[in-house]
């Protein structure tokens, strides 16, 4: 047995029988508590990778193993956030963040009795992302960046072992985006969980990830696996250092090769 938390073994994916491959033979090993990023041109199957790992989509060939078990259906330990915050408009921010607690076991059976504790936990989490005082507002009363913060809280409230992020900061302005990078990094450093971040922002990948995977265009295939050893915590200054810009340049040249191939 290897000690990696997530393993993809010769995984191939077709959306339906007879289709062309969406994902070409893919192998990955992600350690527990590792933060990885997947970058690549759009339509390369990055999002499909997330669905494979979370069990929302079965691989056409090969196997996906999470926590020592082969994935056969949706995992129940996953937190997810997308570019679109997908908050429920009829719930307040606090109730939106508490949604996973109404579903995930064992919390769903404890929620009624320990409501106050859970609310306290949600409020604390909201405070760490800078949403203190907005708990009772409805999503439409929040800005796009605030909604995305709430969405991030919703994906973390049940302390998932595995966090899937599909371009979560893609629609935000540059300042908000970089602020959220810091918030995410802090949360992760306090109590590490395994993160798979899909993004097309190379600086984002270089800022956040321990390992960066570069994917080819369709059919998607992992071309490069790049360790990122920049010291944590990384901050604004890091982004202006030579090693950081070198890393971004290197990633950029890989992507260029992919696009021209």
């Amino acid at each position: 047995m290897s000690n990696s938390f997530v393993e993809l073994n010769d995984v191939k994916l077709r959306y339906s029988e007879g289709d062309d491959l969406a994902l070409e033979t893919t192998n990955m090993k992600i350690d527990k508590g590792e933060f990885i990023a997947v970058v690549g041109p759009s339509g390369c199957g990055k999002s499909s990778l997330l669905k494979l790992v979370s069990g929302l989509m079965p691989p056409s060939e090969g196997s996906v193993i999470v926590d020592g078990k082969e994935v056969a259906g949706p995992l129940k330990i996953v937190g997810m956030a997308f570019q679109n915050p997908t908050l429920l408009p009829w719930r307040t921010t606090l109730d939106n963040v508490l949604l996973p607690m109404e579903i995930v076991k064992p919390h769903r059976h404890r929620l009624r009795k320990y409501r106050a504790e859970y609310e306290e936990r949600a409020r604390k989490l909201l405070a760490t992302v800078g949403l203190e005082g907005h708990e009772d507002k409805y999503p439409w009363e929040l800005s796009g960046g605030m909604q995305q913060r709430a969405s991030l809280c919703r994906s973390l409230i049940h302390e998932p072992e595995l966090l899937m992020l599909d371009e979560p900061f893609g629609a935000l302005d540059a300042f908000t985006r970089e602020e959220l990078w810091d918030i995410l990094q802090n949360l992760w450093m306090i109590k590490p969980f395994t993160v798979i971040l899909v993004t097309h922002d190379l600086r984002e990948a270089a800022y956040l990830a321990d390992t960066i995977y570069v994917m080819s265009k369709r059919p998607g295939k992992i071309l490069v696996e790049r360790e990122n050893t920049l010291v944590r915590p990384r901050d604004q200054e890091t982004t202006f250092t030579q090693p950081f810009t070198d890393l971004v340049h290197e990633l950029r040249s890989h992507i260029r090769d992919v696009r021209e191939s």
Binding site: G55, L56, P74, K76, L88, L99, I103
Partner: peptide, 19 residues
């Protein structure tokens, strides 16, 4: 996306319908 979020939390069809 919302369906994916809920299913990956272990939500049943009934959960998704009600919530």
């Amino acid at each position: 996306e919302l369906r994916d979020v809920l299913r990956s939390l272990g939500a049943t069809r009934r959960d998704i319908l009600i919530k």
